[in-house]
């Protein structure tokens, strides 16, 4: 079974669909037409470039090139996590990179080599989209973990100091905020797994079905990717928070002002 192509005139029709929400937004007084047009244009150009690059990547299917692509994705995700979490990249970039790369590479390698077992473990058709999906979700989780943890510490500075004054070690004093942050990071994935298929059909599964896969095969891939997303998000957020503790606190267990960005 082959996926039906969307030809250029039909793509034009698709863009035309945006006119309807655009008109409604204009009628209720929201002047967003410029922002919407820029976003649609950016999306189209970015995806076109990714399409060209992926096509090239799939054709060449070279292990180093595939690895380089994943490395670039990790580096971009690293900076994106820190920017969105309000932390300074020059202090935390290495810790976050270590956390996300170890967890994403571990989960992807586990999935590809032990579960899917393609002819070549570096097959771009598998590792690039799978690592990308795992990383994308891991990114969200790490933003939540870091943002939640450091904003809770800033908000509860007196409580944290009280714990220290009552004899807690740094780890004992931060543990309540640490647990809350990890819970917040993995909760969306847990909720998503619990309602998957009931509330919405997952994107990857839909994509595979449209691509011609048997629904049962698509289901198995969806389960595999969700387990890997959950695993990598949990591992990365724990490692990331743990590594960040050595950077964010001074030797007296006081949160360093200079390493935390403006809240």
């Amino acid at each position: 079974m082959e996926t039906l192509d969307i030809k250029l005139p039909q793509m034009g029709l698709l863009y035309g669909l945006c006119l309807l929400p655009g008109l409604l937004l204009w009628l209720i007084g929201l002047r967003l037409s410029r922002d919407i047009a820029i976003s649609i244009l950016r999306m189209s150009i970015q995806l076109a470039l990714v399409g060209i690059y992926l096509k090239m990547l799939f054709n060449l299917n070279h292990p180093w090139l595939n690895g380089l692509w994943i490395l670039i994705m990790l580096a971009v995700a690293d900076l994106s996590i820190l920017r969105r979490a309000g932390l300074k990249a020059r202090y935390f970039a290495l810790a976050t990179f270590t956390a996300i790369s170890s967890s994403v590479l571990f989960s992807t390698a586990y999935l590809v080599t032990l579960v899917i077992q393609p002819a070549h473990f570096y097959d771009a058709r598998y590792i690039v989209p799978l690592a990308g999906m795992i990383l994308g979700n891991c990114l969200q989780g790490n933003v939540i973990a870091l943002e939640r943890f450091y904003s809770a510490l800033r908000k509860n500075e007196n409580e944290y100091a009280t714990f220290l004054m009552l004899g807690a070690t740094r780890w004992e004093a931060v543990r309540p905020y640490f647990r809350d942050a990890v819970k917040a990071a993995i909760n969306p994935t847990i909720a998503s797994m619990a309602t998957m298929g009931l509330v919405s059909l997952p994107g990857m599964m839909t994509g595979q079905i449209l691509g011609g896969s048997e629904p049962w095969l698509a289901v198995k891939y969806q389960i595999a990717i969700m387990i890997c997303i959950f695993t990598s998000t949990a591992i990365a957020s724990i490692i990331n928070l743990k590594l960040s503790l050595n950077i964010a606190f001074n030797a007296y267990d006081v949160l360093k002002d200079e390493v935390i960005g403006k809240s």
């Binding site: 007196n158 409580e159 009280t162 714990f163 004054m165 009552l166 004899g167 807690a168 070690t169 004992e172």
Partner: peptide, 27 residues
């Protein structure tokens, strides 16, 4: 022992607040 003007009890009830430091390894 440091006790401030507006102390944080750090627990939901008074018993837990009094026993809080005894959860830490040192006590």
């Amino acid at each position: 022992a440091y006790i401030g003007q507006e102390p944080m009890l750090g627990a939901d009830n008074v018993r837990e607040a009094l026993l809080l430091p005894f959860q830490f390894k040192t006590h």
